[in-house]
């Protein structure tokens, strides 16, 4: 066999291995989605969105959990987004080459990959213990702590994509740095920043561990931020582990809802990024 044939063989072998690896990954993903759909879809009904989580043996839905998840994710984002965006702006615009920003960037990366249960324990310690009870607001804070590093990272990356020439052009018009940031750089990076926020929402909407230590759960309808609040991940966690079949069914349905939501958010984020890379808007 000559050398060319060997090289061709090696190349084909590598291609085949890569193909197999991809296939395994896709099969796992497909299996997960299929399991969720086959188990969860059957339980999806009008009641899912209109009734509360039931006691065992009774019919019910997930309304209080869906509401709780929306509220805590929303408040978490309301705390996390401004902090994350401003910190990302500092890193990209003001902290270039400074030692502080290198430290902030490093700590942020650590936080980005920190296990979320640690975040849950941290908020438990600083809020739940001091307040003396679990609460929705503690849950929202825990979610904010998880959303911040994601937002910082994407904001910094997106602001760094804005050409220096655009910043220079604004400066040359006698525009102050902060005004350049708000009037020129943010609008130019808007879709990138929004994408980062969508990814942060996708990340926090499925978090269970931090809520287990903070918001806990609530069997009933509650809008009190100072009291425990139901939420999809913890409901799934408790119901799936229970011996009751109707609870298990609700857990499957809840899991399907979360997965679909995250899938849609990710697709939205990806299509926005694709639009950014194509150059316009």
């Amino acid at each position: 066999m000559n050398r060319l044939a060997v090289r061709k063989l090696v190349s084909n072998l590598a291609l085949a291995l890569a193909g197999v690896a991809t296939l395994i990954g896709l099969i796992c993903l497909g299996a997960i989605l299929w399991t969720l759909i086959s188990h969860g879809l059957g339980g999806l009904s009008h009641a899912t969105f209109s009734e509360m989580t039931p006691p065992p043996g009774n019919a019910g839905g997930l309304l209080n959990a869906i509401y709780g998840s929306l509220v805590m994710t929303g408040i978490g984002l309301a705390f996390g987004a401004p902090i994350g965006i401003l910190a990302g702006t500092y890193l990209a615009e003001y902290g270039r080459g400074k030692a502080l920003s290198a430290v902030v960037r490093f700590v942020n990366d650590v936080l980005l990959s920190a296990p979320s249960i640690i975040v849950g324990l941290f908020v438990y310690e600083i809020m739940v213990v001091r307040m003396g009870h679990f609460s929705a607001i503690a849950g929202a804070v825990a979610l904010a702590v998880i959303a911040i590093p994601v937002t910082v990272r994407t904001t910094e990356d997106m602001l760094n994509l804005i050409p220096q020439g655009m910043k220079d052009a604004s400066t040359a018009l006698g525009v102050h740095h902060w005004r350049t940031v708000t009037s020129v750089i943010y609008p130019a990076a808007r879709s990138g920043i929004v994408t980062g926020l969508l990814l942060a929402v996708a990340r926090i909407s499925g978090e269970t561990a931090p809520l287990l230590f903070t918001a806990l759960n609530n069997q009933f309808w509650s809008t009190d931020l100072n009291a425990p609040m139901a939420n999809l991940p913890v409901v799934i966690f408790q119901f799936a582990l229970s011996p009751y079949q109707d609870w298990q069914q609700l857990a499957w349905t809840g899991a399907l809802l979360i997965t679909i939501t995250i899938l849609l958010l990710s697709i939205a984020a990806r299509s926005i990024v694709a639009g950014v890379k194509r150059g316009r808007r």
Binding site: P163, G165, D168, A169, T171, A172, L173, G174, V184, P187
Partner: peptide, 28 residues
């Protein structure tokens, strides 16, 4: 800032701001 009002600059690469034509000129 005052200096840059008196001494304007145009760069090699055209860098329209992410706003309308009118706002681009009105911005500064």
């Amino acid at each position: 800032t005052q200096l840059r009002y008196r001494v304007g600059m145009v760069f090699q690469k055209a860098t329209p701001f992410p706003m309308s034509v009118f706002e681009n000129v009105a911005f500064g």
